[in-house]
Amino acid sequence: NKFNKELQWATWEIFNLPNLNEEQVKAFIDSLRDDPSQSANLLAEAKKLNDAQA
């Protein structure tokens, strides 16, 4: 299933962003679980936040 692979990839990527704190990671993962179809958008937002906090 396409969404499942995207969800797994986005989850792994978010867990490995070095500049997000635990609460931010949890919030993004919760959002992914709530709406897996938004995984690409949520990953992009997480990466933006990660870069901003570098």
Rank of each mutant, 00 (worst) to 15 (best):
N50D: 04
R33F: 14
F3Y: 09
I29W: 05
S39A: 10
N21F: 09
D34A: 12
Q24K: 01
E45D: 03
Q8V: 12
A46N: 00
P18R: 06
A10E: 02
L20S: 00
S37P: 02
A44I: 11
D35L: 05
A52T: 11
E23S: 11
E45S: 09
I14T: 02
W12A: 15
E6I: 06
R33I: 14
F28N: 00
A27F: 13
N4W: 14
D51L: 10
I14W: 02
I29D: 01
K5S: 07
L17E: 00
K2R: 05
P36T: 04
T11W: 08
L43Q: 03
S37D: 07
W9L: 14
A52V: 12
E45H: 08
W9Q: 13
E13G: 03
D30I: 12
L42N: 02
D30M: 11
E6V: 07
E13I: 13
Q38K: 13
A46S: 02
N16L: 08
A52D: 12
N21E: 07
F3N: 08
A44E: 13
N50Y: 01
L17Y: 08
I14H: 02
L32H: 01
E13M: 08
E23K: 08
E22T: 09
E6M: 04
E6G: 03
F28I: 05
N19V: 01
E6H: 07
F3D: 15
L17G: 00
K5Y: 13
T11Y: 14
F28W: 03
F3V: 09
A10D: 03
A44F: 09
A10R: 01
L7S: 05
K47H: 11
F28R: 00
N19W: 05
W12V: 09
L42M: 07
I29Q: 04
P36A: 04
S31E: 06
A27N: 11
A44R: 11
L17N: 02
A10S: 04
W9R: 07
K26R: 13
D30R: 09
A54K: 05
Q53G: 07
E6S: 02
A27L: 08
R33V: 14
A46Y: 07
P36F: 06
Q8M: 13
Q38P: 01
L42T: 10
N1S: 04
S39K: 05
E13F: 09
N41D: 05
A54S: 08
T11K: 11
K26E: 08
I29E: 02
K48R: 13
T11I: 15
T11G: 02
L20G: 00
S39F: 11
K26N: 11
E23F: 11
L43R: 03
L17I: 01
K5E: 15
N19I: 01
E23I: 11
E13N: 03
K48M: 12
S37V: 07
Q53L: 10
E6Q: 05
A44Y: 09
L20P: 00
E23D: 07
D35V: 05
E13W: 08
K47A: 06
N1R: 00
V25H: 05
F3A: 04
N19T: 03
S39D: 01
K47M: 08
S31R: 06
L49W: 05
W12I: 10
L20D: 00
F15E: 15
I29M: 12
E45T: 10
L7E: 11
K48E: 07
D51G: 06
F28E: 00
L43V: 15
L20K: 00
A27H: 13
A44S: 11
A40K: 13
N21W: 09
N16Q: 13
K2S: 15
A52L: 12
N19M: 05
W9E: 15
E45Q: 15
L32Q: 01
